[in-house]
Write a protein that binds this DNA or RNA. Structure first.
Lengths: 347, 347
DNA sequence: TTGTACGCGTTATCAA
DNA sequence: TTGATAACGCGTACAA
């Protein structure tokens, strides 16, 4: 509302239409057992149109028991995986006339805590949370006790909730085995800090696959910002006994790996084979195409939102853990040969 | 709040601490002229902690004159340009304890209308809007009259607001001239529908640059979904008199161009030079590197949010149009030769 | 230093 | 079929 001039309320509409407050309210909410005459209803509708009235959801939220808002807290809004999750959530929410509030915690538990607190303060009806590891003391668990929550991508330590995720361990193991099959013996696992649940599971899958083959895995992880990852990768690739293959645990890491390889003059996959996590739009467009684990991000977002809405709708039952399928998309960065072009039209 | 169990209120805290409502309220809001004893304040704080109480912002919003929420409506949440705008907005909002509600209109004016209505209903304090062309009758203009709004990326037809954007016309002309300098005579401009403001301006810049050089531009535009763009590009590239260069107006179009070129066996930049819009993370990592116009997305989001908060803070003055600098980032897809690798360390 | 009354815009409930 | 009243949780204004 413009400074100093307050918004139209139901009262204004009632006065304009020459009826009582409740009549307007009833017309707006369209009671099933229609308790008003069509004539008055029409007058009300016209008044609403004339005044450009929009019901105040804030008041409704206070009066009723729902706000029609859900929260979504993930690591990032620019990372393509999280963005696709957000997209899925948004679509589900839109269908139900819910509004999502998106926040990025940057994998920082203090920021996350503030964000959850803010959402709690807004009395969101539910929360979708990709929980960050808690390195500092927070009251997160107490807060979550009062908000129906579905965990996205990772379970929430110390809290039992529904959860939508993939089998990170199996996916990482499969990708690793694929590199081993290409004959690699020195393979490095590079990514964020393994306190993050998904990184931890991927690490375990990687190490297990290596051990299966009688190999030792090189695990190198680091904090979340980009520059250190680049430095780390460079260091790994500059050593005298450098690995012949790298498993990058997410898109950002993959970017740094490619950048470092280029800067060091290493050919992919000839000098260095690479496998990654997350099949974003460009994975198939770079040269060579990137072999990656595809996570169904949008579907994960959708399912998590559905689970949440089911709970909000009163569905009981034990907490569920939904494991969606991931898939190893094989292109060329692992050393596989290129599939032929779809067609070859001369110009 | 868990089903059936309502949230903690200020009353619960008062009871727990053995004080009156107002004492709690005052402790929470920290009145300047401290009107309570430190002892009671401490008791209150402990009660808050014990109960996990968070002030009800819904009630506060209803009582006061602000909600602490702003809306952000753009085309997409997965497109890297819009995601970076959102990131900028989020950072500015976080600093001021504002909560942003992000929505994607998909360039559909009816969805956009519903979203703005929803935000209006939530009584957001302000709105950042990347307006979609209005192809159907909507009441958008009337709605915006009651919400402080800043236009992001494009002005809003029929509404005078502050606006943050780049000089699309000049940027497109520069990119086009660069292609012309490489000797190209047949250049195609490919993208979304020119009813979208930015596309329109880019078209104008493109055509102007072509005409300057005594050339005719080939302009081919289309609706917003991906598949048709691919088909369009393929058609353009399959004709007997195909262009030797393409100017792709956004990331999605660029993807389709590269895909089509690959599928048709056209080498870039040899058979087809390419220039695009938006310098996302992968533009420099693909081979060849993509020559693109860099838009300062995060900065645009930040500035737009700042402008909005300034207005919310009561700043008067005529509406501003902030034009941020874009930059032509020259890599190799245009035909320029590669810069040498930063270093070349042998392994 | 603390407490009471009222109103923000809406809807549930009851009365007309 | 309609209207009046209370209540949602909080903060402002005032009284104690």
């Amino acid at each position: 509302m413009r400074k100093g001039q307050s918004a139209i309320t139901i009262k204004d509409v009632a006065r304009e239409a020459g009826v009582g407050l409740m009549t307007v309210s009833r017309v707006i909410n369209g009671v099933p057992g229609k308790k008003y005459s069509e004539a008055t209803a029409e007058r009300v509708r016209q008044a609403i149109e004339r005044l450009g009235y929009e019901p105040n959801q804030v008041a409704r939220s206070l009066r009723g028991r729902r706000t029609g808002v859900i929260g979504l807290v993930t690591t990032s809004i620019v990372d393509p995986f999280w963005a696709s999750c957000a997209r899925g959530v948004e679509l589900e929410a839109r269908e139900r006339n819910y509004v999502p509030i998106l926040m990025a915690s940057d994998e920082n538990c203090e920021i996350e805590e503030r964000q959850v607190a803010a959402l709690q303060g807004r009395r969101v009806d539910g929360l979708l949370l990709a929980a960050t590891p808690r390195l500092h003391r927070t009251t997160l668990i107490a807060r979550l006790a009062s908000i129906p929550t579905v965990a996205l991508d990772r379970p929430i330590a110390g809290v039992k909730t529904d959860c939508v995720m993939i089998d990170n361990e199996a996916a990482a193991a499969e990708a690793t085995r694929h590199l081993i099959q290409h004959g690699h013996r020195r393979i490095a696992f590079v990514g964020y800090h393994p306190r993050i649940y998904t990184v931890q599971k991927r690490t375990i899958g990687f190490v297990a696959a290596m051990n299966e083959a009688g190999l030792e895995g090189i695990v190198r992880t680091i904090g979340i910002t980009a520059a250190p990852i680049y430095d780390l990768v460079r260091e790994i690739l500059s050593g005298r006994n450098r690995p012949t293959a790298i498993f990058a645990t997410n898109t950002m890491t993959m970017q740094r790996v490619l950048q470092a390889a280029r800067d060091l003059g290493l050919a992919i996959p000839g000098d260095l084979a690479v496998t990654g996590f997350e099949d974003f739009a460009w994975a198939g467009l770079v040269e060579p195409g990137l072999t990656v684990v595809r996570q169904p991000g949008e579907e994960m977002g959708r399912r998590a939102a559905q689970l949440l809405f089911d709970r909000l709708g009163g569905q009981k039952g034990p907490t569920q853990r939904v494991i969606l399928d991931s898939e190893l998309v094989i292109r060329e960065s692992c050393g596989c040969t290129k599939r032929p072009a779809v067609t070859a039209v001369s110009a």
